[in-house]
Every structure is written in structure tokens, then in C-alpha cells.
Computed example of a mutant assay.
Amino acid sequence: MKVRESVRTPGRTPPGRWLVLLALPLLLSGCAMFTASKGGNGAASDDSVVTGGDQWLIVSKGSATPSPKPSSSGVRPTPTATSGFIPLPPATPRPKPTATCARDTPHFDKINALEVQPGTTSAKVRWYNVGGYNLVEYRVTAINQDLGVGRQIAVGTVVVKPANPCGYLTATLPKLLRKTSYVFSVDAVVTRRSGDGTHAATVFRSSVVDTK
């Protein structure tokens, strides 16, 4: 009986072994993926990567809602005296001084403003007479503000007796120079409350006034 020996050709692999060699990497990679996707107790690990398909975004079309309307009718109320504002009192004219007003004595602690209407060589002044039981007279004068070298022209003093207490008095000062600056003043002369004699002090004075 003859035994047939197979003769192996060097460098040539049988066809069956080619199939085994090709299938072996696939089997090994499948096992590795299977073991990596599970932990020791068969549960999925946190490092596993899950790939999904396309993600869908569902959008539903809504409907516009109207804006809320104000509840008021839109008519503004007319303000009245009872709407919270304090009504202003009606303007009342200041009463004019009369001869029946209460008399007062001149106060020497302040000097009031004096009204002046200048002319060319004279000026008219006007002030309010408060009266008083001890008032004797008023003395009106003008003081030149444009002093020069040499003798000065004396304006003098105009004396006014308080015939109408609690009223306005006027006086005119003559002998003024043209286009000259003056300050006009009115002094009140009163009797002393204690002792004899009189006392005089300025109670009205103007700012600098120029003649024409």
C-alpha cells in the first residue's frame, strides 16, 4: 500500500488559510468592541461613544395675540380747585397811604431809597413821611460827586415841614450844575426823648444821579 505524501510548495499558502487570515482581524476587533462597551458587571461604561442618526427640531406655528388696551377712555380730567393744588389768593392792590394811618417815628437805624427826577440845573426828590409826635422837619440836600480844584459851589439845604403825616412829600433843589453827578439825601429832625434840643440823621438817600 502506497502512502501519498503531500508536497508543500515553498512560499505558497493554501487557499483555506487565506480565509482564516482574513476573518481573524474582524473577529478580534468585534470582541474588543464588545468587551470595551461593557464594564465588569455587564453594564455600559461612561466612556462609551454612542452615535445616533439625524436630530429633528419640531417647530409649531403660533398665532399673534393683540396688545392689551388701556382701561381708561383717554379723556384727561379738567383740573379743579379740589384736585390737590392750593388755590392762589387773588391779587389785592396795596393801599395808598392816607392821613388816617398810624403814625410812626422816623427810624435812624436804616436809610431808605430816595426817588429823584433830575433836570438841567435842578432836581425833584420824593419820599414817604411816616409822621411821628416828635418829628420837627426834613432837610433835603445834594452832594456833588464831580469835585474839582478850587472853591465848590454850595447847593444849600431845602427845609420841608411835615404838614401831611403818613403821606408822600416832595422838594425841589435848585442851583445844580449841568451834566454833573449828585447824591441826594433827606435828614429827619426830631426832638430828643430825653433832655432838650433836637436830633437829626439821614433817613433817605439816592444813588448817583446825573443832571441833564
Rank of each mutant, 00 (worst) to 15 (best):
M1H: 07
K2C: 10
V3K: 10
V3W: 05
R4S: 12
R8G: 04
T9W: 08
G11E: 01
R12K: 14
T13V: 14
P15N: 08
P15M: 06
R17L: 11
L19M: 13
A23P: 02
L26W: 14
L26T: 12
S29W: 15
G30M: 10
M33D: 14
T35N: 11
A36L: 15
G39S: 12
N41K: 13
A43Q: 13
A44R: 12
A44C: 05
S45E: 07
S45P: 10
S45T: 15
V49D: 07
D54G: 08
V59L: 15
V59N: 06
S67G: 13
S73Y: 07
S73K: 08
V75G: 03
P79M: 05
T80L: 10
T80C: 04
T82V: 05
G84C: 03
F85V: 14
F85R: 08
I86A: 14
P87D: 04
L88P: 02
P90H: 11
A91I: 13
T92S: 09
P93C: 02
K96P: 01
K96F: 06
T98S: 12
T100W: 10
R103L: 10
P106C: 08
P106M: 04
P106K: 08
D109K: 07
N112I: 00
N112L: 14
A113C: 01
E115L: 13
E115H: 13
V116W: 01
Q117I: 10
Q117E: 12
T120G: 06
T120K: 15
T120C: 07
K124T: 15
K124E: 10
Y128T: 01
G132F: 02
N134T: 13
V136R: 03
Y138N: 03
R139K: 12
V140P: 00
V140G: 00
T141F: 15
T141E: 11
I143K: 04
D146Y: 01
L147A: 12
G148T: 12
G150D: 02
G150L: 05
G150P: 00
Q152C: 02
Q152N: 10
A154N: 09
A154W: 03
V155M: 01
V158S: 01
P162T: 00
A163W: 06
A163M: 07
N164M: 08
C166Q: 08
G167C: 09
Y168V: 07
Y168L: 09
A171W: 00
A171S: 14
T172C: 05
K175N: 13
L176G: 00
L177G: 11
R178S: 13
K179H: 14
T180H: 04
S181D: 14
S181P: 05
S181F: 06
S181R: 15
Y182H: 11
V183F: 04
D187S: 15
A188C: 04
V189H: 07
R193P: 11
G195Y: 04
H199V: 05
A200F: 02
V203W: 01
V203R: 00
V209W: 00
D210T: 14
T211S: 01
K212T: 03
